[in-house]
Design a protein around this nucleic acid. Structure first.
Lengths: 226, 226
DNA sequence: CGAGGCGGTATTGTTGACAATAAATGCCTC
DNA sequence: GAGGCATTTATTGTCAACAATACCGCCTCG
């Protein structure tokens, strides 16, 4: 894959990575107000690079900043989370369509083999939810880059996924869903392998739509406090 | 509307706005390598806020930055510009669909009246291209915000439009297209007014698809050097 | 007793100087 | 004369001090 550089090349990059993962993992809770100096001591940084990272995070919508009043982690309401899935639906649908047109045969083969390993991960039930989440992320990540649409991949991987992942960590997938999701992944890859771009788009949209409905149902049942 | 604050609230915001408009208008040409100190003197800023703005611009994909090697304005190839339109197609389709479901009657009425004024602007042929571009931007802007999908609006208005507008300035619309575009706008609004979300999505997608093909054709004819 | 204004304090925004890195130039060697 | 290496230089990255602003508690006044 080779996505992350060997090491953050500059202190600002380092700060950016630290903050981003801290937000995604929930180490910095949504809605939490955070002071700059506190963050500096926490991540061994100085305020210059930190502020630069803060700006980038704000631009990506993970932070909100009020002038002279500090920054706080964005808190996404349940409704907004569902809206995110609406966006994912159309964007990843496009990604799947373009991936079907443009992925190399090697990439498709790799994609299929990753699905195999995801299946194994799910079989050994321990840590099922976590591995499923990671596997799911891996799958969608590959489709996004496989679209050969740089901006699309950037928006999906840089903007949307991080916001969704904020909630993945506390959103344990419901029983039975992992298998269903994997099956849906399989069908999408199948369509891509057959270069059936229309079908790939359709299946991807339906896949994400199903995930959204899954969350929607949980919210209705009060199983999910956001 | 009331979008832009009365004045940039902080120096970094000011820097961000300056740089962004400078890039969009072409004052800073794509591919141009720019030094920080030069920018500082040009916009009467100091390097701190400037760097913060630079980070935000980079995060939005208008700049590319190589550590210790300076920043340069992103140069979008013809192929990438067309890819941008593919993204717009699906995202604005979604925006139109949600706008049809969620815009208030007042907003729809306003939208219709803005179309009237756009028509007048086109009638008086002078500066046709410019007004058309602005009117087009205005229209799509309203649809995006009308979707009541904050993240969608943010991604469209914050990420995509600025990149597209970089090329709008040198992309004179072809003869006859303004009228056609206005007509397409009219139909979309009509669908929204009738709360026909499916039709609104369809028409919007087709509208942007037509714009893309228009550009594609120009590129093929060598009328467009990118 | 409540509301509004006022000052202290802590936090953010900004600045200029310092250090580290990469590009560029000139020199030396082959 | 050409190529590679070391030095120089300019640019970026980083830091710590300074200034400006908003929040909080207190006091006064209605």
């Amino acid at each position: 894959m080779a996505e992350a550089p060997i090491q953050p090349q500059t202190r600002a990059d380092e700060a950016f990575d630290c903050l981003q993962t801290a937000i995604v993992t929930g180490e910095l809770a949504p809605g939490e107000k955070i002071g700059e100096v506190e963050l500096c001591s926490r991540f061994n940084l100085t305020r210059g690079p930190l502020r630069e990272a803060l700006g980038r995070l704000e631009s990506r919508g993970l932070l909100v900043r009020r002038p002279h009043a500090g920054v706080k982690v964005v808190s996404v309401s349940a409704a907004e989370l569902l809206e995110l899935y609406r966006i994912r639906e159309v964007m990843e649908g496009l990604a799947a369509r373009q991936a079907a047109e443009r992925m190399t045969d090697e990439e498709i083969a790799e994609l299929q083999s990753t699905l195999d390993s995801h299946e194994k991960m799910i079989e050994q039930a321990q840590g099922q939810a976590y591995y499923q989440a990671e596997g799911d992320y891996d799958f969608h990540h590959r489709i996004a880059t496989g679209s050969r649409n740089a901006k699309l991949a950037q928006m999906l991987l840089g903007d949307l996924y991080y916001m969704v992942r904020m909630y993945r960590y506390r959103l344990s997938t419901s029983a039975g869903r992992p298998h269903k999701a994997l099956d849906e992944h399989r069908r999408i890859v199948e369509a891509i392998a057959q270069r059936d771009s229309e079908l790939a788009e359709f299946l991807m949209k339906r896949h994400i739509n199903a995930a959204r409905q899954n969350i929607e149902q949980k919210i209705r049942n009060g199983l999910l406090a956001i």
